[in-house]
Computed example of a mutant assay.
Amino acid sequence: MKIAVAQLNSSDSIDANLALLAENCGVASRGGAAMLFAPEYSLCVSGDPRTLVKARNHELLSALSSMALTNGLWLHAGSVQTEMPDGRCANRSLIFAPDGELAAHYDKIHLFEAALDDGESWREADIYCAGDVLKTVQTPLGLMGLSICYDLRFPDLYHAYGSVAVDAVAVPSAFTATTGAAHWHVLLRARAIETQCFVVAAAQTGTHSDGRQTFGHSLVVDPWGDVLLDMGGEVGVAFCEIDRAAIDRARRQVPSLRNRSEFGLATF
Rank of each mutant, 00 (worst) to 15 (best):
M1V: 06
M1H: 06
I3W: 01
V5T: 08
Q7Y: 06
Q7C: 07
L8F: 00
N9T: 06
S11F: 04
S13P: 06
D15R: 15
A16F: 11
A16L: 11
A16K: 13
A16T: 08
L18F: 12
L20D: 13
L21A: 03
A22G: 05
A22Y: 10
G26V: 00
V27S: 04
A28C: 05
A28L: 03
G32W: 05
A33Q: 03
M35F: 07
L36P: 01
Y41L: 04
Y41K: 02
S42D: 02
S42Q: 02
T51C: 05
K54T: 04
A55I: 02
S62V: 13
S62C: 11
A63Q: 13
S65R: 07
S66L: 08
M67F: 15
L69S: 14
N71V: 14
L73Y: 10
L75V: 15
G78S: 00
T82K: 12
T82N: 11
E83W: 09
M84L: 12
M84T: 08
M84W: 10
G87I: 04
C89S: 14
C89F: 10
A90V: 12
A90H: 15
A90N: 14
R92G: 00
I95H: 07
F96V: 07
D99T: 12
G100H: 09
E101I: 08
L102F: 14
A104C: 13
Y106R: 07
K108H: 13
L111T: 12
L111H: 13
F112M: 11
F112V: 07
E113A: 14
A115P: 12
D117A: 14
D118A: 12
D118S: 15
S121K: 15
R123V: 08
C129L: 09
D132W: 06
V133Y: 09
L134Y: 07
T136F: 11
Q138E: 11
Q138M: 11
G145V: 03
I148D: 02
C149V: 00
C149T: 00
Y150Q: 00
S163K: 05
A168V: 05
A168M: 07
V169Y: 01
P172C: 00
A174I: 02
T178S: 15
T178E: 15
G180I: 10
A181T: 12
A181I: 07
A181Q: 14
L188R: 06
Q196M: 08
A202F: 00
Q204W: 08
G206W: 08
H208A: 04
S209W: 04
R212M: 04
R212A: 06
Q213T: 09
Q213Y: 06
F215C: 07
G216Q: 06
H217A: 03
V220P: 01
G225V: 04
D226L: 04
V227G: 08
D230I: 12
M231G: 05
M231I: 02
G233F: 06
E234V: 06
E234Y: 05
V235L: 08
V235D: 04
V235Q: 14
A238E: 10
C240M: 02
I242W: 00
I242V: 11
A245I: 01
A246G: 14
I247S: 06
I247P: 14
I247Q: 13
D248L: 10
R252C: 15
R252A: 15
R252S: 15
R258D: 10
N259W: 08
R260V: 08
E262V: 08
L265W: 12
T267D: 12
